[in-house]
Design a protein around this nucleic acid. Sequence first.
DNA 1: CAAGCCTGTTAGCGGTCGTTAACCTGAGAG
DNA 2: CTCTCAGGTTAACGACCGCTAACAGGCTTG
Lengths: 203, 203
Amino acid sequence: MSTRTDAPTRREQILKEAARLFAERGFHGVGVDEIGAAVGISGPGLYRHFAGKDAMLAELLVGISERLLSGGRLRAEESPADPEALLASLIDSHIDFALDDRPLITLHDRELDRLRESDRKQVRRLQRHYVELWVTAVRALHPRVPESEARAAVHAVFGLLNSTPRLADRDDGPAARTATESLLRRLAHGAFAALSPPSEDGV
Amino acid sequence: MSTRTDAPTRREQILKEAARLFAERGFHGVGVDEIGAAVGISGPGLYRHFAGKDAMLAELLVGISERLLSGGRLRAEESPADPEALLASLIDSHIDFALDDRPLITLHDRELDRLRESDRKQVRRLQRHYVELWVTAVRALHPRVPESEARAAVHAVFGLLNSTPRLADRDDGPAARTATESLLRRLAHGAFAALSPPSEDGV
DNA sequence: CAAGCCTGTTAGCGGTCGTTAACCTGAGAG
DNA sequence: CTCTCAGGTTAACGACCGCTAACAGGCTTG
């Protein structure tokens, strides 16, 4: 398994450009001709690779949801008994996704309702499992916090981490990326820390 | 000036329903016939009240942006010399808007690009001033934090606070609302608190 | 009571969009 | 050398959408 030095498939090109365009102008705001033009072919040519426009969106959303979940599960296995390290690891993993696949993170919580019923159900199932992973981690660290509140906090922190697309459209090099990572990490930890009131004495 | 017990104008009905539909299915995903049907008239009837679909979106986005900014300015005047109280006040004000006008908060950062150039510029100007209000408040409280970082943190906290639409679609009564307010307030304060490292000694 | 505006209706136009049909071409396989 | 087929092309169809035109009913007003 090399680190993908080979050229991307046509399918992959299409998915990447479609993600970018959908994120920029919304699913209904992008025509198939535009997507085709973005990869150098004409609109109907896309139908050699996808069943339709809906299928592209479905593959994008299912894909990002699966990758988020499996990334989260990996982290959960790595930190089996250390709640603090687990939550930190989940946060880092999510930040990586948010910074690597900005358009997908945008689509992920914006165009879900444009999916066919079955695809939407699948994406929602994956999302729910991912959230449960986080809720479990948060409650392990903050046992007195009720589940509904933990879940709301997790969604809110997702909102915080997913604000990335609105920052730094241009690539300012790896330094800026590291700085953004560090900032988001601190903000997320700070938010979660506010869940339990600070204890005056030790644990 | 009473507290509006009178019936809403037709224009206001239309704006409210349009906001809901735009937030649910996206600007391009809603037809004028649907908006009309939502207020009991047929599609073209809307043109007695608005110049077009674009004009409805423009009025919605300019409106929420203006209200956010003027709300923020009001708070800034109330807490002229107390940075901590000012930031707390800005947070409370924003939470109120987010909980009162959930669809508008959604549209506000999602459908901006569907506006005509001039409207978009106006909304962006209002948004920029609003962000500046927050950045100033944050930097008064955390003087060592560089401006770019403060600005990124403000955007991230907006993402946190604006996650509200994804929670609690149904009205669970005023108790749930108070709980959500309190949670968001704590999370936002916790996030900002993480900007400056906690000082071991006093100030 | 008549005039006129306000607010609604229905019919329809022009344009766009997703998709299909029909055709073409170049690279491998036998 | 020919057959096949993956991966393109253009033309066109049907549906839909935003918007305008033309018309109508009901208040308000002089």
